[in-house]
Design a protein around this nucleic acid. Structure first.
Lengths: 223, 223
DNA sequence: CGGCATCCATTTTGATACTG
DNA sequence: CAGTATCAAAATGGATGCCG
């Protein structure tokens, strides 16, 4: 199994040799919110069969971007987690996401899957680090049975799957609100005000959300 | 010809639907330093046949990322240029390049192609915008028969193929120096000091290069 | 559940030959 | 040059069966 390569001594090409194949960057997107099990990865990626998923994960391991871990009790099952090198692809994935928010989102299309985690990651890519200078806060997001949290610590952010230890604010909402947000219908602040979102916790931190996360203005691509 | 899609309502996935196919991001990398002709694109991308190149360019046009233009006299030939949406992929490509510089470069491998333009783009991704606040300067780089220039204007940068109008500094060097730089053997400052680089122009601006462009420290990926 | 192996229909790609 | 046309080789997708 010889690995295909662009054979260019160029940082972009070398990166794409490693993560440029179909599905690879989406796998990394999944793992950016924390370790995931084989089955959960497959459920998130319709169209990716077990064979190819297995091959891609092996490749990520071989290339030092991910590794198998044992989930702590009481789970005690295997899962895949990013290594440091894998985590550091975050900025690149966020940059791709930002471009997509601006130039490629719009209305949800017939048959398109949606997972709350994707919206949470999109939110991370909207994080305005300058607006968080000196801030320390944890926001928890509950959407149906899915829970995520954003940990902000002085201009850095982490967005992880699962509940927070000590959330300062808890926001409970529905998938539909996130879908509207992802479609660019008003920023995060509007999504909150809009409808079903219920928030509990520190009022000041809650109202700060609109400054911490700024959704880019959608634009039209013209041929 | 139905376009293949991940079918996910997610900014990253939507972006990859558009630019995630093989060669597409490398094509965009080529166009990020300015318009290019069909033949020149092909020469830069060994392994990409005329058929696929033609198909990719059509797709870029259809998706509003690039368009055909007429080069101004005396050239008067057709070329491909990025649209605004295409240009805005710059940050994403730069992010991929930065990751590659850190985690994937090292020694040049047997058979790998190299073009000065790739190094110039890598340089752009090392640009420290804070270090350029209030600065206005144009650097011209000459490498063999290839000429590029970096136009810095108050914390923003453009790196283009071709000579500059009014360069403040002209740096003449060899491919080997750029290759060493790309391999991470010392930053740009060192590359200049090192050997064949000859610079003419404003001394103060020249010595500022080491602050304007900071090469990331190469790291090892561990499986 | 997690994961590999196998088979097979479709797509993508790579390489080259050919045309305006 | 700037592309089309063509064909062989790979990669993908989907289904299914097996094993710990």
């Amino acid at each position: 199994m010889e690995q295909r390569s662009y054979n260019q001594f160029c940082a972009t090409a070398r990166t794409l040799d490693i993560v440029g194949e179909r599905w690879t960057l989406l796998l990394i997107r999944e793992l950016l919110t924390g370790p995931k099990r084989f089955g959960d990865l497959q459920k998130s990626l319709r169209g990716l069969g077990t064979g190819l998923l297995s091959a891609r994960l092996k490749q990520l391991e071989r290339d030092g971007l991910a590794h198998k871990i044992m989930l702590p009790p009481p789970a005690r099952t295997r899962a895949y987690a990013l290594t440091e090198a894998g985590e550091e692809l975050g900025p690149a994935v966020m940059a791709l996401a930002r471009w997509g928010m601006t130039w490629a989102m719009g209305e949800r299309r017939e048959g398109e899957a949606f997972h709350p985690g994707w919206a949470v990651l999109a939110l991370r890519s909207c994080f305005v680090s300058e607006a968080a200078a000196g801030l320390q806060a944890t926001y928890e997001f509950r959407v149906g049975s899915e829970v995520f949290h954003a940990d902000i610590d002085d201009s850095s952010i982490e967005t992880l799957h699962g509940p927070a230890q000590h959330p300062d604010v808890v926001i409970e909402t529905t998938e539909d609100v996130l879908i509207d947000m992802a479609a660019g219908k008003g920023g995060f602040g509007e999504a909150l005000r809009n409808c079903t979102a219920i928030a509990t916790g520190d009022e000041a931190l809650l109202s700060r959300l609109g400054v911490l996360f700024i959704w880019p203005t959608p634009q039209k691509r013209r041929p």
